[in-house]
Simulated assay, not measured.
Amino acid sequence: MGRWWARFVEHRIAGLGDMPRSGGPRTVTDEQVAAVVKRTLESAPKDAAHWSTRAMAKEMGLSQSTVSRIWRAFGLQPHRTEAFKLSTDPYFIDKVHDVVGLYLDHPERALVFCVDEKSQIQALDRSQPVLPMMPGVPQRITHDYVRAGTTTLFAALEVATGKVIGSLHRRHRAEEFKKFLVKLDQEVPAGLDVHLVLDNYATHKTPAIKTWLMAHPRFHLHFTPTGSSWLNLVERWFAELTNKQIRRGVHKSVQALEKGIRAWIAAWNTDPKPYVWTKTADEILERLASYLNRIPDSED
């Protein structure tokens, strides 16, 4: 308080403004900052796919720390990349509205399930015994393994509760999908409609499946757009199954693998956690439009 009062007495109102501060003068100009950002966004080095702080510093005559600070300030991360895929489905907009509408506004007297198959799940046994974790040493497993066979998991994730109905089969055909539909029909209480969100895989649209659906009119299929598996919530559940059960598991036989998967599903269903969808269809389509605007000639 005394410092501000002294400045006011000496300089009056002007003394309350920002005064010159200690430290060296600024050495990087706004033009240099703009040049670094422009070069980062619009070019690549001759000998690499993306810029590094060292390469950019050498190119622009600045220090690595300066380039690093500029990149952090503008959220630039040339070393990172993220994958995306734009659907070519001619009915993309209609399907997005249909599926997202089910997530955000469930039909009355009906259950909504996200359905898909996780095929070719391999029963893998490591070629040598697993070395357990010790203080300062992580668990160690051999990089090679012995294949004992494969299985396919058909799964239906109930959107409202997060519960999962699963069925394991050694093959992945329309016949097995039909058996899974029969299981769903048996487990869903009578009097409730059944809405299934699923992809465009051929086994979901065979004549036998269409005949079965005609005989069971309470079942309604809602197809996600081609190449848009991110719209199917069961894919998120499959990722958890893979990370927590399959990826680091050691299974000497397909039977052991299937037993482990069934046990994991049973444990999940004791305390299921639904995945809450928050984006509206319009928000998704607006985000897609922003991507398209960044792609040259996307209107074609």
Rank of each mutant, 00 (worst) to 15 (best):
V33A: 06
A44L: 08
V146E: 14
T29M: 07
Q122M: 14
T142Y: 05
L86H: 02
I284R: 13
R173Y: 10
F238A: 06
V96Y: 00
K183S: 12
S65I: 09
L62P: 09
A289R: 14
L168G: 04
P135R: 00
S253Q: 02
M133E: 15
A110E: 02
A34T: 00
D300I: 14
T280E: 09
S68G: 12
H169R: 15
W71H: 10
G166I: 03
E258Q: 08
S127V: 15
T242R: 01
Y145W: 13
G149C: 14
R287I: 10
E235A: 04
K183Q: 15
A49K: 01
K179E: 12
A156L: 08
V37N: 09
T152D: 09
F238H: 02
V234P: 02
P132S: 04
R170G: 13
L124K: 02
G61W: 12
H216Q: 04
I261R: 00
R170V: 07
L102C: 13
I284T: 11
S298M: 04
W268I: 08
R26K: 15
E158S: 06
A289G: 14
T27Q: 11
A55H: 00
V194K: 03
K183C: 11
W237T: 07
A156R: 05
H216L: 00
T142H: 09
K205D: 07
K38M: 07
W264E: 04
P129W: 09
Q186N: 07
K163L: 10
E283C: 10
F74A: 09
S87V: 03
T278M: 06
A148Y: 02
G101I: 10
I165C: 07
R262T: 05
A155Q: 04
R7L: 15
V115K: 02
A49Y: 00
V67S: 05
R109E: 14
V28H: 04
D30H: 02
